[in-house]
Simulated assay, not measured.
Amino acid sequence: MMRSTPLTRRAVLRTLASLPVLGLPCANAALAKPTRYMLDPRASSVGFVFTLSGTAQRGTMPVKRADILIDPQNLTASTVDVLVDVSRAKTGLFFATQAMTGADVLNAARYPDIRFVSTRVQLGASGRISEGARITGDLTVRGVTRPITLEATLYRRPGSRADDLSQLNIRLRGDISRSAFGASGYSDLVTDTVTLDIQATINQTG
């Protein structure tokens, strides 16, 4: 990923405070309202890493939908709702893809989606969501919902102005236990831990 400009609550508020009032009452307050973003599917995917017979393997799943609400005045009140298309999952090995999407693991025919809905956002010590923020939420796989915590970063696009929040890049990373969701097939060949790496480009709506 290209290096982008980190987004912080302080930077957002400083930028908003410096903008002209434009002759409207409470213009700055209006600009700082929670903003909804929608997914750019062409620049978004879920990467994952698993270990097969002692060798790390990589795969991807397309993000079907992402509904993200960012509150510049209170970043911890921001929310994320991501839906992933399991039926289009791919790995570098055809037989591994077939096994992963089959009934013994993800069972894509019956459970075609994976969903993550945030419940809590924690910022790092510096107050930067781009430096050590954590997002806790509910992950649903195979119809089983369990809480997980993902490391999160959020950036403006490279070279953008400080007041340009029209497009943002978000990244969520973390480990899950596949057996915790009933996806325990081929445990003699594949380790239980799967590392998720969700990367998405989001754009302001309206």
Rank of each mutant, 00 (worst) to 15 (best):
S4A: 15
T5H: 11
T5P: 07
R9P: 01
A11H: 11
P20S: 03
A27R: 15
N28M: 12
L31C: 06
L31E: 02
R36W: 03
R36E: 08
P41M: 04
S44D: 01
G47T: 08
F48M: 03
S53K: 09
Q57E: 13
G59N: 07
T60P: 03
R65C: 08
T79C: 04
D81C: 05
V82A: 09
V82G: 02
D85W: 02
S87V: 10
K90Y: 06
T91D: 02
L93H: 10
F94S: 11
F95M: 08
F95R: 10
A96K: 04
Q98G: 02
T101P: 01
G102C: 08
G102L: 04
V105C: 00
L106I: 11
N107W: 12
A108I: 00
Y111G: 02
P112C: 05
V117G: 07
R120A: 12
Q122L: 12
A125Q: 11
S126M: 04
S126F: 04
R128D: 15
T136K: 10
T136P: 00
G137S: 11
V144G: 04
R146I: 07
I148Q: 09
T149N: 07
A152H: 05
L154Y: 04
L154Q: 04
R156Y: 04
R156H: 09
G159K: 09
A162Y: 04
D163N: 13
D163S: 14
Q167E: 06
D175K: 15
I176K: 07
A180Q: 13
Y186G: 07
I198W: 03
